[in-house]
Amino acid sequence: MTEILAKLEHVSRVYQKGREKVDVLHELDLEIEKGDFLALMGPSGSGKTTLLNLLGGLDRPTGGTVTVGGQELSAMSNSQLSGWRSTHVGFIFQFYNLLPVLTAQKNVELPLLLTNMSGKERSRRAGIALEIVGLADRANHKPRELSGGQEQRVAIARAIVSDPELLLCDEPTGDLDRQTADEILKLLQTLNREHGKTIIMVTHDAQAAEYAQRTLHMDKGKLEARAAA
C-alpha cells in the first residue's frame, strides 16, 4: 500500500483585494503519494502557485486543512512553519532566487545554517548536492558567473541539500531554453526516481509536464484529473 505524503481536505483560499474577495482555491481535495511526481497545469490565476505555497507552508488556507508528512500545517505557528520548511521541503523557483553575493557552494549551504551542523559537515553536504546536480566544478562561482541552467542546478542543489522529502517547483524551466529545460527536467526526474523525492511542479509547458508521473489541471481554483501522456 502506498503512503500518502500530503493531503488537502476541503481547502479554500480567499484573498481580500480592497473590498473585493477573490476566491483562489475552492473546497479543494487532493492526496499526493510519497514518491509522486506531479505536474500542475492551468491558466494564469487558476490557483497553481497558491496550492504550491499552501503545501510548502508559505501560506495558510482560509478553510480546510493541509497535512504534510502527518503534520497539519494549518495548526503550526509561523516560527514552527519556518522550522518545518527548513527540514521537510525544498523550493525551486522560476528565477532561481540565488543570493548574488554568495558562491554556488555557499548558496547551497544556506539551508544547513538552520541546523546545528559543523561548518565542515555543511561544506561536505553542499559538495555532494552540487555533485548530484553535476556542478561540483562550479562550486566557487558566483551566480552571475553561471548560465541560467547552471543557476537552476545550484537552486536544485540548495533544495535537496537538507534532504527533504518534498520538492516544490514553481515554473522551474520557465526562464530556460528548450534544451536546458529538458536537462533540468531530467535531473528532477532522476531525483524522483533514484532519490525518492516527491515532486510537485507548477508549469505552463505541456512538454515539461510529460516528465511527471501524472498531471493535474487546475481551473478557477478547482482540480481536474487527467492521466499523464
Binding site: G56, L58, N78, S79, S82, G83, W84, R85, S86, T87, F91, F93, N97, L99, L110, P111, L114, R158
Partner: peptide, 15 residues
C-alpha cells in the same frame, strides 16, 4: 525583498 522572501522560504525565521 526577494532575498528576504527567499531566506524565509528556506526556513529562516522572522527574528
Amino acid at each position: 525583498g526577494k532575498e528576504i522572501a527567499t531566506l524565509r522560504a528556506l526556513g529562516f525565521g522572522p527574528l
